[in-house]
Design a protein around this nucleic acid. Structure first.
Lengths: 339, 339
DNA sequence: GATGCCGACTGAACCGGATAAGCTGAGCAC
DNA sequence: GTGCTCAGCTTATCCGGTTCAGTCGGCATC
């Protein structure tokens, strides 16, 4: 089965290749009657433009890139990325843009991928996830002049466009909610220490702790995996002054924490209240269902994709704050039981 | 920053574009000394070939496509796809192939995407997931002559290459294990009814049921979501002759089933044994950890990718059986308690 | 009635590689 | 010395689009 080219369309319409190109791109240079005739013929013979030829002459790849820097082991468990990708995808496919995905081991590999994509002109721009403090990827991308949107912030994104949600406000709201329930000993199991949003949440936690005089508010660091989250929980619950509420930086650790609590004979929410960041079906899967900080992640991804396409189109790099995560109370939080 | 082209390399090496092309592609036509000189210069000035130009002249896109046909809602929760993707990716990036991803709503949309990819020459081949009985995508791909590997089978894959694991054997092994523990009333919460592998597992379940005389072995159908899995479990556990063991067709439903059992005051594994298909970190996240049927999913993905690249290279479509899932006993299975 | 202008289109030159075909000089046989 | 082969290049063409510089006919303008 031979794929029709623009020349085939031109021949059948009795016009030149140039005219067909103008017609297809909605550009002036052909009469409305001719445009319609050309479009009809193109549809008839099932013509679509070669992305390669288009990329070569128009200097646009028609694709954006996403490099996921997580070990294969952790990657799958968190629903976050798939939700993000599905949102990104929805926005891109509406514009016939493709999404090129690559899984990388670390930032060096990720920068190498960006460099390769740039050299091969394979993507028009990239989405950057998991912003760290002093993130080496930022200057690398700036040097390449590769359009990019950083999902994360605010701050630390250099001259690049960025999109973030107000994690500080969300964390503060959560702590205030727990305090209103009567909790005073609140712990937090944080994600990787050098991620920018971990830092932001940690600062917010310190601020609200001071403001409300929560002397027993501790933060322990973990790595988003269930194993580590469970281990951290076991340590917290074994301490002399064990917390009555724990806030987890992701859903996976929260579910692991719940299991550990149950394994140790504690009831949730009677003995321990649990809050998960990143609401997901996972939080509703367990018993009791977890109170969670959620936001519309596909919408977040779609937003980022739109922003990236704008940057690719030459618009100035915006810094945009997305929806603030909101708390959905479920069965895992309650006033602490008297002891 | 100007991207270097093959002409830049040629100029600096004092040779023609053609010579550079031969050198880069490891083709005869240049001396070994010249080849080395050209390669050195190419590395020095940071040259990489434009994927567009390459695609245009070599008629190969350097990318393979994966269309995921799941609603955004379900997509994220199952770790399966991310694990698969990371395996596919590892294989592809080793060969500088890109992975193009698209999320689609249904098979019609998926076929439309294949057609578009084919027309745009955007991918050299595709991986097909979630094979159904009488799958319309198979004839569509055959008609397009788009190289493809179907992940699923055996059978129902037409002339296309395919890769599957022996689900029948795995299911039989699992039932035999449960029977050995002393279970007689074994239920199965199956996935979507028209998926090919659901059918295969269902047939195997019927066969082993008959062979071992398990009159109370029932199958109920679900849709892989936690909600539905939980609901199905609730129904099973509320029946007069409730099962003492349940096999779930994915990890998410198994976790949901565990929650429902605990919510209903049943202990696992005392009152109910649970087995999950698709072992994943999710199974180790809960308490008790779930006995699961696992296999190396990244390896499965890598295998499929290798197979697809072979088909793209013109080798005949193979039908390959991958590793059979193996049972990993954990805390969720035990002999049924006497009643 | 010559001039200018505009819409509608054509022709040709790109974009950056791959590759077939042609050229050149060295090495060798006779 | 002539003819032949062959490695090691160069040259030209092609892939399938986009785009710019023209061409041409028709119409308004002075």
């Amino acid at each position: 089965m031979k794929r029709p080219t623009i020349a085939d369309v031109a021949r059948r319409a009795g016009v030149s290749k140039g005219a067909v190109s103008y017609a297809l791109n909605g550009q002036p240079g052909v009469s409305e009657a001719t445009r319609q005739r050309i479009l009809t013929i193109a549809t008839e013979i099932g013509f679509s433009r070669s992305s390669a030829a288009r990329a070569l002459s128009a200097a646009t790849a028609g694709a954006i890139g996403l490099a996921l820097c997580r070990p294969a082991r952790t990657l799958g468990v968190e629903p976050f990325f798939m939700a993000l990708i599905s949102g990104v995808e929805a926005e891109l496919s509406a514009r016939s843009y493709a999404l090129t995905l690559q899984v990388v081991a670390d930032h060096d590999a990720e920068i190498a991928v960006y460099r390769r994509w740039w050299g091969e002109r394979r993507v028009d721009g990239v989405l950057v996830c998991d912003l760290r403090t002093n993130d080496r990827r930022i200057p690398a991308l700036e040097e390449l002049h590769l359009p990019a949107v950083v999902i994360g912030g605010p701050g630390g994104t250099g001259e690049l466009a960025s999109l973030w949600s107000d994690d500080a406000a969300a964390l503060t709201e959560t702590v205030e909610y727990l305090v209103a329930l009567g909790h005073r000993r609140i712990a937090r199991v944080a994600g990787l220490r050098d991620l920018r949003h971990t830092e932001i949440r940690t600062d917010a936690f310190a601020a609200v702790r001071q403001r409300l005089g929560l002397v027993d508010a501790v933060t322990v660091w973990s790595d988003y995996t269930g194993e580590e989250g469970g281990r951290a929980t076991r340590r917290l619950l074994s301490s002399a002054h064990r917390p009555t509420a724990v806030i987890y930086d992701n859903d996976v650790m929260a579910v692991a924490g719940l299991s550990v609590a149950q394994e140790m004979g504690l009831t949730v929410p009677g003995d321990l209240s649990i809050v998960a960041w990143d609401d997901s079906p996972l939080c509703r899967l367990v018993h009791p269902p977890l109170t969670a900080l959620g936001r519309d992640i596909p919408a977040y991804g779609a937003h980022a994709a739109r922003q990236l396409l704008a940057v690719v189109a030459g618009q100035p790099a915006g810094r945009v704050q997305d929806e603030t995560p909101h708390l959905t109370p479920r069965g895992s939080t309650a006033p602490p039981r008297e002891r």
